[in-house]
Design a protein around this nucleic acid. Sequence first.
RNA 1: GGCGACGUGGCCAAGUGGUAAGGCAGUGGACUGCAAAUCCACCAUUCACCAGUUCGACUCUGGUCGUCGCCUCCA
Length: 475
Amino acid sequence: MLSLYNTKTRQKQEFTPLDPPFVGMYVCGPTVYGHSHLGHGKSYVSFDVLLRYLRYLDYKVRYVQNITDVGHLTDNADSGVDKLQKQAKLEKLEPMEIAEKYTASYFHDMDILGNLRPDISPRASGHIPEQIELVKTLIEKGYAYQAGGNVYFDVSSFPDYGKLSGRIGDDQRSGTRVCIADDKRDPRDFALWLEAGQDHILGWKSPWGRGYPGWHLECSAMAMRYLGETIDIHGGGLDNSFPHHECEIAQSTAATGKEFVRFWMHNNMVTVDGRKMGKSLGNFTLLRDLFQRWDPMVVRLYILRSHYRSPLDFSDEGLAGARSGLERLMSLRSRLGDHEAGASSQAATELVEKTEQEFKKFMDDDLNTPGALAAIFDFVRACNTLLEAKIKDADKHLMAALMDSLVTDVLGIELASGGSSGSSEDLCRILGELRGYLRKNKLFAEADKLRDDLSEAGFSVRDFPGGVSEVTPDI
RNA sequence: GGCGACGUGGCCAAGUGGUAAGGCAGUGGACUGCAAAUCCACCAUUCACCAGUUCGACUCUGGUCGUCGCCUCCA
């Protein structure tokens, strides 16, 4: 039975969808004004594993993840500059060119990290009518008020505001640096719609004049548009729980009178030397740069080696450890090969069953991927031990199928020898045969020269008794 | 100041009221022409510190110290 930690109740709860077997899942997507960094990687890998595990459990999941291409301001004063517009000026491009460029970059990075595409990736700019309707509803119901060309949510009209993040009342205000916009009734009030100034390129006609939506609004509008008024799971980074998710709850619940989200899930942050990785500190590592030095699957395994609700402190040592671990997994998968299914031995069957049970036990416990990986590594050792003796092809098939199912399908870690094309596979085979031939004929100097050269070129050699050698590309 | 999280071996990282998973690194052995890979064995009397509850706590309670996140935009 899958249990998930619900930020709303601050405890693990058994997960059941509102309308089984269907699951509606919404995750806050990126604001597309820059390339993705490792922090985005951790977040979206975490929820990708949730998606994959839910599907493994036979739920029919609709996964919606927005693309924020408007309305995200550089500061909280509600008079700040739109992030995309700022970047557009910097790059001398149209805001929508910036959005296109970094949306493509985002999908590219996530694809090679092994994340499945969301079923729907709605753009905020493509859902302005829905957002305007939502604002109208909130004004009609008395939860929002107009002040000139701006519309604000009236926080005092919504008593539950602050419940998700534990900010009850207004005592949290002392010591903060919240700038108070002149036309707000209460400093906690947040913008639903903002008037677009002269220099503001991104603007739409609305009942309140030309303007653009507040950042929080898009998620409410798009989540409800595609997943209904009550959604099963809403995810996002821990740093979004306040104020973003708090505002979403207020907007949506006020508009519909229904519970907006049943399970709130938040992943923890990537840190560098203990400090949060982020744009403001400038201590971020872009995924595209990371991929120059590390195989994307190394990065993915690195992320999954810690729990999604724990912070992950970035280090090369950690990545190196993940690479060794990945090599171990890939090495076993390659040893198992591709064989037909058949009558398997009792030992193999029991091992596979036990491993799957262990794996599920950990995953059911709030997606404990480090634990699940421990179960996998136990399995790897057991398989290698069995492989030391001759085992049936049917057993290999069974073991390989388990690796493919749990490691590749659920955890999303691709174990096939990395990206080698057909022709380079042929070359590896030929070079392996050459090394084997040289060893067989005791031409060790030549054989070792070949091994050294291959190593320098990024290939590893594995020798087997009887003059059989294998060449594989390094990861 | 308010809210919250965390502190487990050299590094990373799970976990449980009943006596510390797993990975990386390291050590010894097997295998090998030598390596690598793989296998076997070893590697925390101890879970920040101090009290308390308990037959028993690393796990529960209180306190201390330390680290971090949110309260501004941020995955």
